[in-house]
Simulated assay, not measured.
Amino acid sequence: MKLYYSPGACSLSAHIALHEAGLACTPMLVSTKSHQLQDGTDFYSINPLGYVPVLELDNGERLREGPAIVQYIADQVPAKNLAPANGSMARYRLQEWLTFIGTELHQGFGPLFNPATPADYQPQVRERLLKRLQWIDGQLAGKPYLMGEQFTVADGYLFTVANWAGFVRLDISGVKNLSAFQARVAARPAVQAAMKAEGLLK
């Protein structure tokens, strides 16, 4: 398999899932500015939408969209319990989390990364994001991970997106459960391996 990624982007979630699953995969670095691979290949020829992640399977099929990719990865190694069994209520809860993180957090950070976002609009974006993060903080009360005791692919996605707060100078020091969660996930060997692979840790 090949994972097309950009360092620290949402593709880190898939990278974490691969390391947690123990699956072999070739990382393919994509420039978010030039939309080219290191060998000069036009990334639009890989994904016409131009963004990461893309997981290319051994048979040449390609999967787009992080939540679909991480569930595919989890399902390859069910014994790792990175996702509950398909068809179970717990699996729908996982999908609920992946959808929330994607639509309410991932998308919510977008305007703060866009230099064209008007300065007078940014405070509204930050306030909305902080409210969503505070809600998650409450959901993490008394448990180590979103689904309880078991780390899942939703945790890797939340960790990835919540890390962006530092890049956009969004102060999340007041959300104590989330801060503890971030530190807990960052300490996982597979997460450290994924971050090292992307050059985010030395």
Results as ranks from 00 to 15, higher is better:
Y5Q: 11
A154N: 07
S173G: 06
L201W: 07
G102M: 09
P78W: 04
L178M: 02
A119M: 11
A162V: 13
A83H: 04
V70F: 01
G40Y: 08
L37G: 08
I16S: 07
Q182H: 04
W97E: 13
L130K: 14
G156V: 04
T160N: 13
G66T: 15
P111A: 07
Y44N: 03
S6A: 15
A68T: 14
E20A: 10
G22M: 05
A183Y: 00
L49A: 14
P118D: 14
A186I: 01
S13T: 11
V185R: 03
G22R: 01
M195T: 02
H106D: 11
N177A: 12
N114Y: 00
A24G: 15
N177W: 00
M1E: 09
W164A: 12
I69P: 03
A74E: 05
P123N: 11
V54H: 06
V52D: 05
D171E: 11
S34D: 13
G40L: 11
G142R: 11
Y157D: 12
K143R: 15
M1Q: 10
S11W: 07
Q95L: 15
A24M: 10
I172K: 08
E61C: 04
W97H: 14
P7I: 04
Q95G: 10
K176R: 13
G142Q: 09
A141I: 03
P27Q: 07
D137R: 06
